[in-house]
Write a protein that binds this DNA or RNA. Structure first.
Length: 507
RNA sequence: GGCCCGUUCGUCUAGGGGUUAGGACAUCAGAUUUUCAUUCUGGUAACAGGGGUUCGAUUCCCCUACGGGCUACCA
């Protein structure tokens, strides 16, 4: 099996593209074979610097590696269509000579005029086809000596496919089954442009043939042009080795209608690309999941389950398990909404399955960035305390902020609810107890003393606990409080209690 | 507009001629945690509509509606 991922370097890789690459990767790793990265840069006007590198890096972050491609080389290179430019002309010529294609000299203006005239006379979809081409300027409608003259004088031309009339094209799709299209619905697509480059249609057929691709797995947006591709294989006489087709369902917006677009990320304040993209023209940065602190395993797991399912109730899949379980038979036909909340959940699952040891390094990096210092032994104890409260590793900072910074303010709803009655008295009592403590400071003793102080005022500890948290962290919620206090140290806790007692109203 | 593809809880989906239509996320409630979170238990919630075929259709067929894609010398 040989499959390819063939993006166009027109910008950062869309999540739908990542998923297409992923499905190609999973299938070829399962079946055995090669995955090829081919860059389809036949439109020179849309080239964006850095896009190619971005695509490779994003996929690499996801764990998707190629066997052949622009960055790897291989026996079927070059893998960049602009570098294959010279070889396409002969294939286009071959079709002209065999009568499957023809030269067309129409200018952009003439084409516009033709479409407008058709529209004006009520034709639903104006096409360059068997009906209209006789009225246009091409090698089928013009006298042969004029065609020769135009070609000799170097007049710009394109090569169009001569769409046959009255035929039915049958496409066998691995995901959708049989798709039948009438050639009357198809037009004479340009195969070879006046700038000397092929269009996608010619290039992908020629390259898939030359690179011996066996399975074309691509987005659903290519389904309508697949009959043309089949006709091209036929015209070349390559039907025997034509690859199998599989058209993947699209990724849809998280809410509302339509297909997923980069604006959806902006709108919801979430990353959109796998890795950060810097627009080379404006310098504007688009956030990526990598930089936002997501695990690539979580992102891949999430993406894999959009449009595919294993057929049982499993949800958590490592890459190897995905490879094992994957198959085109279980790919859905319908589009899937790109639901960010499920990604959060996946990331949380992967985070929780991490060992404390493996989180030491990233958490410690986050602390360094923040300028907060901490002994390894304390960090090791602090991580499990807050881990369950995190979705991303980067959440660590907000979870431990109050460990490093004394409260600047106190959560008002808790102040209103808990700061009153006997609480100030308990607090005074507790401060004295903590200060005069002779035993070693620990969570257990801190808790015991708190309970005693509460008892002396005839109050239940539970009713006062949130007030204590408020006094010591300023916050309404957080990790196990007495463990936290134990790590924070006695004198720091006492100082914070005093500060709270003097800042907040006494009664 | 034309052509093509699609349509099961809010979301991702399983299922498939006779099922209490299953799971997960989200959401809600209860329990545990002396607080919040975690965890556990439970709940709300779906076969787009109309015709066929059939003893029986959510499942098969047709139509309609809705959604999506394509309709460039873009991929």
């Amino acid at each position: 099996m040989r499959v390819r991922f063939a993006p166009s370097p027109t910008g950062p890789l869309h999540p739908g593209g990542v998923r297409t690459a992923l499905f190609n990767y999973l299938l070829v790793r399962k079946m055995g074979g090669q995955l090829v990265l081919r860059i389809e840069d036949t439109d020179q006007t849309r080239f964006v610097p850095g896009a190619e590198e971005f695509i490779i890096e994003s996929l690499s972050w996801c764990g998707i590696e190629f066997d052949e491609g622009v960055h790897k080389g291989g026996p079927y290179g070059p893998y960049r269509q602009s570098e294959r430019k010279a070889m396409y002309r002969q294939y286009a010529m071959q079709l002209v000579e065999s009568g499957h294609a023809y030269y067309a000299f129409d200018t952009e203006k003439e084409l516009d005029t033709m479409r407008e005239q058709f529209k004006a006379s009520g034709v639903a979809s104006p096409q360059y086809n068997a009906i209209s081409r006789v009225r246009m300027k091409n090698s089928l409608s013009l006298p042969s000596d004029e065609v020769a003259r135009r070609l000799e004088t170097g007049e710009p031309y394109v090569i169009r496919f001569k769409m046959p009339r009255g035929r039915e094209v049958r496409v066998q799709d691995r995901i959708r089954g049989l798709v039948v299209v009438q050639t009357a619905q198809l037009d004479d697509k340009v195969l070879f442009k006046s700038d000397g480059m092929p269009t996608y249609h010619l290039a992908n057929v020629v390259d898939d043939r030359l690179m011996q691709i066996t399975h074309v797995i691509r987005g659903e947006e290519w389904l309508p042009s697949t009959p043309l591709h089949v006709l091209l294989y036929e015209a070349f006489g390559w039907l025997e080795t034509m690859p199998e087709f599989a058209h993947l369902p699209l990724l849809l917006k998280p809410d509302g209608d339509g297909k997923l677009s980069k604006r959806d990320g902006d709108r919801l304040g979430l990353p959109f690309y796998a890795t950060e993209w810097t627009n080379p023209e404006t310098g504007e940065k688009m956030p990526g999941y990598r930089e936002a602190g997501y695990f690539p395993e979580a992102y891949v797991n999430f993406l894999a389950l959009l449009g595919w399912n294993p057929g049982d109730n499993r949800e958590i899949f490592g890459m190897d398990e995905l490879i094992q379980a994957f198959g085109l038979e279980r790919v859905n036909k319908h589009g899937a909404r790109y639901d960010f909340t499920k990604l959060q959940w996946f990331n949380q699952q992967y985070l929780r399955s991490r060992s404390v040891d493996s989180l030491m390094e990233p958490c410690s990096q986050l602390l360094i960035q923040k300028g907060w210092e901490l002994e390894d032994s304390i960090l090791r104890a602090l991580i499990p305390l807050v881990m369950d409260r995190m979705v991303l590793v980067s959440d660590f900072i907000q979870e431990v902020r109050s460990f490093f910074e004394e409260p600047e303010s106190y959560d008002e709803t808790v102040v209103a609810k808990k700061w009153g009655g006997v609480f100030p008295a308990v607090l005074e009592d507790l401060i004295r107890c903590y200060e005069s403590l002779h035993e070693d400071w620990s969570g257990t003793t801190a808790e015991a003393l708190f309970k005693e102080a509460a008892a002396r005022q005839g109050a239940s500890p539970g009713s006062l606990l949130q007030g204590l948290r408020l006094a010591v962290t300023g916050q309404a919620s957080g990790p196990a409080l007495f463990d936290w206090m134990s790590l924070r140290g006695r004198s720091a806790c006492v100082a914070r209690l005093r500060r709270a007692a003097s800042t907040l109203p006494t009664g």
